[in-house]
Design a protein around this nucleic acid. Structure first.
Length: 286
DNA sequence: CGTAGCGCCTGCCGGC
DNA sequence: TGCCGGCAGGCGCTAC
């Protein structure tokens, strides 16, 4: 489910609904996620008061008043659900936090993840940037620092296709497989274009497209392909705006030629051969 | 060193 | 109807 816009949507709702709640109970029904949830987490976070959640790339960070923060990643199929009633568990509910507000009213945060590629970890607030999963994150996709200079610097001495580069969280944090195809279509860049040939003009276009696509997706509440729901249970509506992703065999909205799908790096990539044309010599072999 | 490919999981869909 | 292969929004690890 989640690329950065979906994670951002999730975070915004957590921000509204979890702030200053006290964690009074933690239940772990399945600790074998991407990594095994550490035993001590349950005890450590008891009686912690939740401060303002934030996002780093596709990670959600939930800081607390005890210098500890939760690190949550939703993997491919993870969702966080907030409930105000103590409802029966659903399939693939793996972790449940019970929380209290200042009037002792309970609410519940539930981590649900069918494929279990996501995880929950924790660390000390001041050690966050040294956490092994966060320390190598590249620049935030929507930050000002993401500009053509930054991209060109990162692309220097690399010999990979632009599609692979956009998915590399060490370069830019937040882009996933759906939006990578969309971004390349918008910037008229062939997905196999070798980053070592990207010039300033192309880098500027790519930066603009990254920001435009992700900002639009956030506005639409993210993309629901199959199972993304925000913590309020709402769906995302960016799917209707997708220009190339999952449109193989259909007509390009711009030139009416047929959208192609290719597979590399183990992921599907959708593009328009006409709109994203490139001389062969600039493409990365696959 | 950088890069390509694998594997972790469950569920769903299309083809036979 | 049922079974099977392929595929899915991510990402760290391993082998080269």
């Amino acid at each position: 489910m989640p690329e950065m816009p979906e994670v951002e949507i999730t975070k915004r709702i957590l921000e509204k609904q979890l702030k200053f709640l006290k964690i009074c109970k933690i239940q772990i029904f399945k600790k074998e996620l991407r990594w095994i949830i550490k035993n001590e987490l349950k005890k450590l976070f008891l009686d912690c008061i939740i401060l303002k959640p934030f996002r780093l790339g596709k990670y959600i960070i939930i800081p607390t008043n005890k210098n500890l923060c939760l690190i949550i990643h939703l993997g491919m199929s993870g969702v966080l659900k907030i409930k105000i009633k103590n409802e029966k568990l659903e399939k693939h509910d793996h972790v449940k936090f019970t929380m209290l507000d200042e009037n002792e009213k309970k609410s519940y945060l539930i981590y649900n993840d069918p494929r279990r590629f996501g995880f929950i970890d924790y660390c000390y607030n001041n050690k966050l940037k040294y956490h092994f999963l966060l320390k190598n994150l590249g620049i935030e996709a929507l930050s000002k620092g993401l500009n053509s200079d930054y991209l060109l610097k990162k692309f220097k001495n690399k010999n990979i296709s632009i599609k692979i580069a956009l998915l590399d969280q060490k370069i830019v944090a937040g882009i996933g497989n759906i939006y990578a195809s969309e971004i390349l279509f918008l910037s008229k860049t062939h997905p196999l274009f070798n980053v070592k040939f990207i010039d300033v003009n192309q880098a500027i276009k790519i930066c603009k497209s990254i920001k435009l696509i992700l900002t639009r997706a956030i506005k639409k509440g993210g993309t629901t392909i199959k199972d993304f729901k925000n913590p309020d249970g709402k769906l995302g509506y960016f799917k209707q705006q997708l220009l190339v992703y999952s449109r193989e065999g259909k007509k390009c909205f711009v030139c009416t030629k047929i959208i192609k799908m290719i597979n590399f790096g183990g992921r599907a990539t959708f593009y328009c051969e006409t709109c994203q044309k490139s001389s062969k010599e600039f493409l990365k072999e696959i």
